[in-house]
Computed example of a mutant assay.
Amino acid sequence: MTKTIVVLGGAYAGVGVAHRLLKYTKPQVKDLKVILVSKNSHFFWNLASVRAIVPGVLSEEQYSQPIEKGFAKYPADSFEFIVGSAEDVDVTAKTVKISTTNDGGERVLSYDHLVLATGTRAVDNSVPWKSNGTYEEVSAVIANIQDKVKTAKHIVIAGAGATGVEAAAELAFEYGKQKEVVLLSGSAELLDGDSLSSNVAGELKKLGVQVQKSARVESTHELPDGKTEVVLKSGDKIVTDLYLPTMGMAPNTEYLPANLLTDRKFVDVDEFYAVKNATDVWAAGDVVWKPRGSFVVSDKQAAGIAKNIDLVLKGKAPTVVKTLPMDVLMVATGRSRGVGRMGPVKVFSLMVYLIKGKTLGVQSLPGYVDGSAF
């Protein structure tokens, strides 16, 4: 009897689980079938989104590639790719209702094991920090921002977390004094007061980024001339050619029963990354936010889940999923420098540049798509 694994989400965690199961479990579990469901037909390397908005720096192929072709090497009866989104999960009946994108239809999938890897989304659909929609929608958002960047003389980036800092640094690195780049921090310090805050502030100053702290955005209004008026909680107003919000991420969990979620609407998992209050359901990546969203953590979670599904299919007990022994944070500040830490120990700028800032990892995209990275 076929053992069907349904994986929801076509990004780092979902694609990682699917490839690992097909590469390492399928040869031993002959009747295994993996069904991967993704709203985006392409794997979007969102780590590079902050650089993708800068015209002429990256080609689309460097940060976005078709998912399905990467699975073509597996037997046809062992893999199915569905472009669509989950609408409902019944953990008792072990079924998932899918809304398919290409034909606007609906399918109900039965599973033996279900993997939740639907990640998070940007609350504002006008920015590409996450894959908020289909391939066509994400491509259109990036193209629109690139067009606006070309003509903008003044750019405001709201939110001074890692994404906001990196976006501001990329723009300032590319344009220098040609464009005025303003970074608004809702908190009194950058990175919400992380120990790297002062280091980041120093790097941004070198690039000419104007940083405003304790500058929380109250509202924004598009003006008749196409500019945007940004109203701060202090009452101050800023008129800008281009407004890019980086704050506001929400988990993609609306399709799930409430008893599977934490009070913050992320998926609640145990130490095996099995979903609590469900049987044969697993979750990884930003959708669990444990300990927080991270590319490296997501990959380790995906590896752990694939291993545990493999064990359970073979009648063995799952093992505890281990991620990182310490909290790691690396922030690129343009295309030549960066700041970072491993736990409390700060990392040299050159190391951050070599590990992250030089390419933002785009060289790894082909390996994720075709499975050779795993």
Rank of each mutant, 00 (worst) to 15 (best):
G9L: 06
T2Y: 04
Q65G: 04
K3A: 14
I53S: 14
Q28P: 02
A93N: 10
R20F: 07
G14D: 11
T101G: 06
L114Q: 01
V50E: 06
S78N: 11
K26A: 14
A86M: 11
Q62H: 11
D31A: 14
E60K: 14
N102P: 05
S99D: 12
Q28K: 14
S99H: 12
V83R: 12
D103Y: 08
Q28V: 14
V6W: 03
V50T: 15
K69I: 14
Y74V: 12
L36I: 00
R121L: 12
F71L: 09
V15Q: 06
V57M: 08
L109H: 02
L32V: 08
A122R: 00
Q65A: 13
A18M: 12
T95H: 00
F81P: 00
I67M: 12
L36Q: 01
R121W: 06
D103W: 04
P75L: 02
V127L: 02
T25P: 07
A72I: 02
G84H: 02
A11H: 08
P66A: 13
T100I: 02
L21P: 06
I67Y: 07
V89K: 01
A52M: 00
G10L: 10
V91N: 11
K97E: 13
L8D: 02
V29R: 03
A122V: 05
Y24I: 03
H42D: 15
Y12V: 12
D77R: 10
I98S: 04
H113K: 09
K30N: 13
D103H: 06
S64G: 08
E80H: 11
I67K: 08
F79E: 10
D31V: 00
R121M: 10
T101C: 06
S49P: 15
A11F: 06
I67W: 09
N102Y: 11
Y63M: 10
A52D: 01
N46Q: 13
I53P: 14
F43H: 10
E106F: 11
V7D: 15
V123G: 03
Y63G: 03
K26E: 07
H42N: 15
K94P: 02
E80V: 15
G9N: 00
I5A: 07
V34T: 09
V115K: 00
V34R: 00
T4H: 09
S110T: 02
K73A: 13
P55C: 10
K23E: 14
S85T: 10
V29P: 04
G16V: 01
T4L: 07
K73P: 05
A117I: 03
F71D: 09
T95F: 05
F71R: 08
A117L: 08
K30W: 01
V83T: 12
R20I: 09
V115Y: 00
I82R: 01
P55T: 10
Q62C: 03
A86N: 02
F44Y: 15
V50Q: 08
L21A: 09
E68L: 12
S38K: 00
F43Y: 07
E87S: 10
T100F: 08
G105I: 02
N102H: 14
V6Q: 01
D112M: 05
A117H: 02
S49D: 05
K39I: 10
V34K: 00
V108Q: 09
S110M: 04
K97M: 07
